[in-house]
């Protein structure tokens, strides 16, 4: 799809017409604007919600919301940052409502089986790091994801999370150190 738009001259010309001249954004233009970062949104949702199904639902939901707000999306300087913020808020809301509901028993069951899974996947180092990331506080988890996986600038992350750069750096430092410590701890247990 991206290749097509690069080679097809009619499409590239169409893109150059400033969006502000028109009231409505077509669905094609909308998708051209927002689809390039769908994977980033999905991975962020996945980090927060853990379940792939729920992460996919979240991304779908965020895109619906973006589509409904398409008239304002062209006014944002950085639609990507806007979408990331939306995804983060949506996923945190989902978590909250899940915890508020009577899912506590299910949740503790899940935590129990998670430990089993951790032992099974002991030889899969990458999975181990993901598991450690799951245990981080939400803010740290999100910062680590946005910086070390998605490689956003501190200024961008600060904007996305509506926070200052110093706080972002502190959260990131804590997250990185926790992952390191947990890995060392795990390795020590593994050896002994």
């Amino acid at each position: 799809m991206i290749e097509g738009s690069l080679t097809d001259p009619s499409l590239t010309i169409k893109k150059r017409v400033p969006l502000c001249w028109r009231i409505y954004m077509t669905q094609g233009e909308f998708l051209d604007t927002v689809l390039p970062f769908k994977d980033k949104l999905y991975r962020l949702a996945r980090r927060i919600l853990v379940s792939t199904d729920e992460a996919e639902d979240a991304v779908q939901e965020v895109y619906l919301k973006l589509w409904k707000n398409k008239r304002s999306i062209k006014n944002y300087k950085n639609p990507e940052a806007f979408a990331v913020t939306m995804t983060k808020n949506y996923c945190l809301d989902r978590l909250k409502s899940k915890q508020a509901g009577n899912l506590k028993i299910v949740h503790s069951n899940y935590a129990h089986s998670q430990n089993v899974a951790r032992e099974i996947e002991a030889n899969d180092g990458v999975a181990l790091v993901f598991k450690i990331m799951e245990t981080l506080p939400e803010q740290q988890k999100i910062v680590l994801q946005l910086r070390d996986v998605e490689q956003f600038e501190f200024a961008e992350i600060a904007k996305m999370l509506d926070n200052n750069e110093t706080a972002i750096r502190v959260a990131l430092s804590r997250a990185r150190k926790t992952v390191r410590e947990q890995l060392i701890q795990y390795n020590n247990y593994g050896i002994s």
């Binding site: 949104l41 996919e56 991304v59 895109y63």
Partner: peptide, 19 residues
């Protein structure tokens, strides 16, 4: 392992169609 995991995490992609 840490850096390898972050690199691996970056390869995950959204495969469902957006409706």
């Amino acid at each position: 392992l840490m850096f390898a995991s972050f690199a691996k995490a970056q390869t995950e992609s959204f495969t469902r169609d957006i409706v």
